[in-house]
């Protein structure tokens, strides 16, 4: 028997706008990501100084998760993220620092972010989540794999809730779509509703 799960809440960050459950929380005409995310951080009154040390992918993920987990009490929450570019934005920075023998200056603080799952580690630290993290790379948002994998984790009781979705940062473009899957919630957890929310929010 397959239990049915629900989408409890969802958050989208793209093109200068942050929304939660369809409601706009922050908008900015700022076109450059680092300025945009910094002004969002201030306007949304997130108080977490580690934020400023993070790479762009982690900043994007942290703010999106913050919108969904601020009032969340369930700590047994797995993280299942996906994107297209992996950690390529930071990979390029590290590569730049080692390309020429004359300007060779690799930095541990950059290198550690050359893994996409680091952004899930940042969220786990911020929210005290001792749970499973999995990061998948696909050329486009793939609701079906997220759906199957999330159902598996919940069905095996590896987690009570799952925070999942898409966190992509590449060449200055950003797109975050995170949602919480739980036993109860607004939308039935299905491939159709995941795709619908991703395409319309």
């Amino acid at each position: 028997m397959t239990a049915s799960y629900h989408i409890e809440s969802h958050c989208r960050i793209t093109e200068g706008r942050i929304s939660k459950d369809g409601k706009s929380l922050f908008e900015s005409a700022e076109t450059e990501f680092s300025a945009f995310i910094k002004s969002a951080y201030k306007a949304l009154e997130i108080n977490y100084s580690k934020f400023f040390k993070m790479d762009s992918l982690s900043k994007l993920a942290l703010v999106a998760a913050e919108m969904l987990l601020l009032d969340e009490h369930e700590k047994n929450m797995a993280l299942v993220f996906s994107n297209k570019a992996g950690s390529l934005d930071t990979d390029r920075k590290h590569q730049h620092s080692i390309q020429d023998p004359d300007g060779y200056y690799p930095s541990p603080a950059v290198f550690v972010y050359t893994l996409p799952n680091i952004c899930m580690g940042e969220i786990s630290i911020r929210h005290g989540l001792f749970s499973e993290n999995s990061f998948f790379i696909c050329n486009r948002f793939r609701a079906d794999d997220l759906f199957d994998y999330t159902n598996s984790l919940l069905g095996m009781q590896k987690a009570e809730k799952v925070l999942c979705g898409w966190i992509d940062f590449d060449l200055g473009k950003y797109d975050a779509f995170l949602y919480v899957v739980a036993k109860n919630g607004t939308f039935i957890h299905s491939k159709e509703s995941i795709n619908h929310l991703y395409q319309t929010q």
Binding site: G86, L115, P116, N117, I118, N133, S134, F135, F136, I137, C138, N139, D145, D148, Y149, N151, S152, L153, M156
Partner: peptide, 28 residues
């Protein structure tokens, strides 16, 4: 099918086995 790619630092290789099992259990 399209390939699934798992990139989860140095646990990826073991986690991939778990992921494969879970997709099999989900009937995919």
């Amino acid at each position: 099918h399209e390939a699934m790619v798992l990139s989860n630092a140095c646990v990826s290789g073991v986690l991939a086995i778990a992921v494969a099992k879970r997709f099999i259990h989900q009937g995919k």
